[in-house]
């Protein structure tokens, strides 16, 4: 029971991380295509200014909770995915410092260099996170000792790449809606147009992904056994369709919330299908890491449950406050302030 509660918390934390960081990564991936001059670029960066540090901590927490609740999964998952994980971390470092460093010097070469770093640092994690999670859904070639039999190319299979593309599209739509809500015309209208057209691609790839999931993974088994769970994908698809409705009404914040719900729903859809596995083996189901064979001691799980249920709600309260505090659109006037990126 304790293990199952932790599994749910684990899924929720990753979902929140994706929701939060999708803003940054989506915005960063989209930026070079819609921000053409230095002012637009600075508007883009400053729209994320007050949030990126806090968003990054969700990754630390999601990783930390994996380590705390399911240490064997943490160890095997991160050693097996050694190269993609380090690529992901290096990319995230580049993205974060690019944002911090870029506007601190005026030289054009300096700014261009960090713009490129920011794009790479946004696009690569978006893709890799999708590839990694899709591969986990279909199983990873690990043996009974948790040793990975494959390399980076093993992970770049059809279903893995499909997951990667889906993630990138989800991120980009989310980031575009953020910019539409947080900036003024002309930048916001360019972002709005991008959101509308990329949304169509998102829908198409999402449908292909859901069908492919039937053939490549066992995710649907849990849904067939417990039909009430179908609510999760149904709500997710409804949220995805709602995005388009709100875009048509130019209700950017509502569209953005629908997009957040899509992301949380998509993550929970996968995680629910995975249960009780955390890191399934494609070589032999007996080698799979589950919530039961990889959890910490019940004593630790209980203490950590107390910590999580006390502090995570507090975190959500003050982070929500910070979002409300900085909900205003970023304007060219803001760029003149001493604090601006």
């Amino acid at each position: 029971m304790l293990e199952t509660i932790w599994f749910v918390l684990w899924g929720v934390l990753w979902a929140v991380y994706f929701m939060e960081q999708r803003i940054d990564l989506g915005v960063g991936t989209l930026a070079p295509f819609i921000a053409n001059n230095d002012t637009d670029k600075r508007l883009v960066y400053n729209s994320m200014g007050p949030f990126w540090d806090g968003n990054e901590v969700w990754l630390i927490t999601a990783g930390g909770v994996t380590f705390a609740a399911f240490p064997t999964t943490y160890a095997v998952m991160f050693s097996a995915l050694y190269t993609p994980l380090l690529l992901l971390l290096f990319a995230l470092i580049l993205r974060a410092v690019a944002l911090e460093f870029r506007s601190k010097e005026t030289a054009e070469g300096w700014r261009k260099f960090w713009d490129v770093c920011h794009f790479i640092g946004s696009f690569v994690p978006a893709l890799l996170l999708g590839v990694a999670f899709a591969n986990i859904f279909q199983g990873i070639p690990i043996d009974g000792d948790g040793i990975f039999h494959g390399n980076l190319l093993t992970l770049l299979n059809f279903y893995g790449l499909l997951g990667g593309v889906l993630f990138v599209l989800l991120f980009v739509v989310h980031g575009a809606l953020w910019l539409a809500a947080k900036t003024e015309a002309p930048l916001s209208s360019k972002a709005a147009n991008a959101a509308a057209s990329i949304w169509l691609a998102e829908l198409v790839v999402a449908v292909i992904f859901l069908v492919a999931t039937w053939f490549f993974t066992g995710l649907y088994n849990n849904y067939l056994s417990y039909p009430v769970l179908w609510l999760i994908p149904l709500i997710t698809v409804a949220a995805l369709l709602a995005i388009r409705v709100f875009i048509a009404k130019e209700a950017w914040w509502k569209a953005w919330f629908a997009s957040s719900l899509t992301i949380v729903g998509a993550t929970l859809f996968g995680v629910t299908g995975l249960y009780p596995n955390l890191f399934p083996s494609s070589l032999n189901p007996a080698y799979s890491l589950t919530v039961f064979n990889s959890a910490s001691s019940p004593y630790t799980l209980k203490i950590m449950l107390g910590v999580a249920l006390t502090f995570v709600p507090i975190v959500i309260v003050y982070q929500t406050w910070s979002y409300f505090l900085f909900k205003d659109k970023v304007t060219t006037e803001d760029l003149a302030s001493d604090e601006a990126y």
Binding site: G49, P50, F51, D53, G54, E56, V57, I60, T61, G63, G64, V65, T66, F67, A68, A69, F70, P71, T72, Y74, A75, S296, S297, Y299, T300, I303, M304, V307, A308, F311, V312, V315, Y318, Q319, S322, L325
Partner: peptide, 26 residues
């Protein structure tokens, strides 16, 4: 050592890192 090291890292993230990084931005 997941019982110890994992839980302490998770505690530091939830109690301190969030507070630090959210409020420095504010």
């Amino acid at each position: 050592v997941g019982d110890f090291f994992g839980s302490l890292l998770a505690i530091v993230a939830t109690t301190s890192f969030f507070l630090e990084s959210t409020f420095i931005a504010i």
